[in-house]
Design a protein around this nucleic acid. Structure first.
Lengths: 259, 259
DNA sequence: CGTTGACTTGAAATTTGTCAAGTTTAGTGG
DNA sequence: CCACTAAACTTGACAAATTTCAAGTCAACG
């Protein structure tokens, strides 16, 4: 499977509906792919570089963000300065929804590489979508997806051991690649071993050891952060998660498009 | 502080706005407390008993639920049957939002004691609220609160040790009591030690040992599941979370009412 | 009053973390 | 282009927190 290269770095300002990426973005929640083109709220796009903040924890909530390309980490910080990476949003993922309830963002959102990101001013979005049942449902679906994702993560971190967590993580990255029309077996990890460890609640050393072990067992081929190949079925077997095997992944994508 | 007893067991069917509980429920998200009385979507109420399911994981999504009284556990299950309790929703908490994105509930929701619960048929809710900007914002805020809550939980489970997790858990229960106008230092835990352990990713034995230890250190007085008193400041000190100290708790509630 | 399930307590076992010491890589400046 | 430095990563040995195992105790209920 060859990666499908889309014009990701091209900025898009204006209506969401006229954005080339929108079928992989908001569009993926809409039943009718033409409906995606009707989305008429304003978006503005900007490019960030490695280490740039999209927003800070504690900053006043104003907008939701959609990642168009690149990868981000969202970091929650305890009062005594300990950090927990809650996720690595990539293309088609949204950021910032956790800030609405309290009126301030709950995490730091930091670019891991060059990121193209859409800003959706929340008040504008809400005003524009008043009376638009489809858009309202879309927004709630977006939020629901985040709730579900966090619950899955709680399950992964709570009930799986180090090896299973690592396998699950790799499969999740692979699945995200597939969703974006890229190869699920060949891609680059945007985050460091330390970031992976923090996210999975494992020491950096454990992450390193597990990756080496997977390589030795022939489950994955990589150099540094470049993954050349991974055995999806083998990893799914380890992780106790069938949902990430290739036939299953294809099915998931198919049903997702029906919704 | 004496517990404020509300007529919780009284069923309420009809408009949300005319429900006696609604200021502790949907109302707590609305700036103007009178606005809560204007909520005009239909609700239906029912009573469940210990062990009853509100819904099952995998069941088709149709409604959101609001707990009026009693306590619930939400359980996510892996393919190999391992269970993770993702939360213990109580009065004023919502359940079911994780089901919208995939069209089916992601967890089992099970009553821990006698529960009075409101059913909000989602399609009806959406239709009724189309054009009502306030209600749209309210629903999104409800979802946002769940996202934030899950992220906080990820931080708690990921970066705190057993003792801190236990302290944080007790403070969270205490805070929930306060929010519902009940005593934050005297209440009954609806869940078993095993449930607490599962939720906090600790063995039952560890939970038991920690509770005993807290009792010996004078941080908490309890018999079985009845908590007679707890040292909020002491526990907050252990848990590294100032947000649960009494002055802070009062402030949180105050600002929450302004929103 | 005995049975059952929930809880408690102690001792041993194990996974994963911590510490320490390399090794490789990427970036920098001569 | 090469040496130098800092950061990221790897690897091994040991330590520690928590789990597991085993054996009770307690309380509710028929």
């Amino acid at each position: 499977m060859t990666p499908k290269i889309l014009p990701l770095n091209q900025l898009h300002n204006g209506k969401c509906g006229s954005c080339a990426r929108n079928k992989l973005c908001f569009g993926r929640f809409l039943a009718d792919s033409n409906a995606a083109e009707q989305l008429d709220f304003e978006i503005s796009n900007r490019i960030l570089h490695r280490g740039d903040h999209i927003f800070y924890s504690g900053q006043e909530f104003s907008s939701l963000y959609m990642v168009r390309s690149g990868h981000v980490k969202t970091v929650m910080v305890t009062e005594d300065g300990e950090e927990q990476i809650t996720g690595f949003p990539g293309p088609g993922d949204s950021i910032g929804a956790d800030g609405l309830a309290a009126g301030q963002y709950a995490v730091d959102a930091i670019a891991l590489d060059t990121v193209s990101i859409c800003t959706l001013h929340f008040d504008h979005l809400l005003r524009t979508s008043t009376g638009e049942e489809d858009v309202q449902r879309l927004l709630l679906t977006l939020f629901s997806e985040m709730i579900f994702g966090n619950e899955q993560l709680l399950l992964t971190l709570g009930k799986l051991d180090a090896q299973q967590r690592m396998a699950t993580f790799l499969l999740k990255q692979s699945h995200a690649q597939l969703r974006n029309g890229c190869s699920p077996v060949s891609f680059t990890l945007a985050m460091s071993r330390a970031d992976i460890g923090n996210h999975l609640n494992l020491a950096v050393e454990t992450v390193s050891r597990l990756l080496t072990q997977f390589k030795q067992r022939g489950l994955i081929k990589f150099n540094r952060n470049d993954i050349d190949w991974l055995d999806i079925d083998g990893l799914a077997n380890l992780s106790n998660r069938r949902e990430y095997t290739l036939p299953q992944m294809a099915e998931n994508l198919a049903t997702a498009q029906l919704n």
